[in-house]
Simulated scan of single mutants.
Amino acid sequence: MCQSTRVDLQLLLFTIYNQARYDLVINYRAEPVPPLKEDDRKWVADLLKEKGLR
């Protein structure tokens, strides 16, 4: 008999991000490498501006 386990991925990723202190490592003001497509670049720029990171 095989049992399945549910994992809250949002909580998992949030916890890893916070415990690893990625907010101190990732420079959200720099352009990503490799560069994003134009539509994605605009979406990211708008999101970061909304969050006060740009």
Rank of each mutant, 00 (worst) to 15 (best):
M1V: 06
C2I: 11
Q3K: 12
S4G: 02
S4D: 02
T5D: 04
T5K: 08
T5V: 15
R6I: 11
R6L: 13
V7S: 01
V7R: 05
V7C: 05
V7G: 01
D8P: 00
L9D: 05
L9R: 09
L9Q: 07
L9F: 14
Q10K: 10
L11V: 08
L11M: 09
L11A: 14
L12K: 10
L12V: 13
L12E: 08
L12Y: 13
L13T: 05
L13I: 13
L13H: 11
L13G: 03
F14D: 12
T15H: 08
T15A: 06
Y17K: 01
Y17V: 08
Y17D: 07
N18Y: 05
Q19E: 15
A20Q: 11
R21N: 14
R21A: 13
R21P: 00
Y22I: 15
Y22W: 15
D23L: 11
D23S: 14
L24W: 06
L24I: 05
L24E: 15
L24D: 15
V25K: 12
V25I: 14
V25P: 00
V25L: 15
I26L: 15
I26M: 08
I26N: 05
I26A: 03
N27H: 06
N27P: 04
N27V: 02
N27T: 04
N27S: 09
Y28C: 12
R29K: 14
R29E: 09
R29G: 14
A30R: 11
P32F: 03
P32N: 02
P32I: 04
V33T: 10
V33C: 02
V33S: 06
P34V: 11
P35K: 03
P35E: 07
L36F: 14
K37Q: 11
K37C: 05
E38P: 12
D39V: 09
D39S: 08
D39Y: 05
D40Q: 14
D40Y: 06
R41A: 15
R41W: 07
K42G: 00
K42Y: 07
W43P: 01
W43H: 09
V44S: 01
V44C: 04
V44K: 01
V44I: 14
A45Y: 02
A45C: 00
A45K: 03
D46M: 06
D46V: 00
L47K: 06
L47M: 10
L47C: 05
K49Q: 14
K49Y: 06
K49L: 12
E50A: 07
E50C: 02
E50K: 08
K51I: 01
K51W: 07
K51F: 05
K51T: 00
K51S: 02
K51G: 00
G52H: 01
G52M: 02
L53M: 09
R54S: 09
R54G: 02
R54D: 05
R54Q: 12
R54M: 10
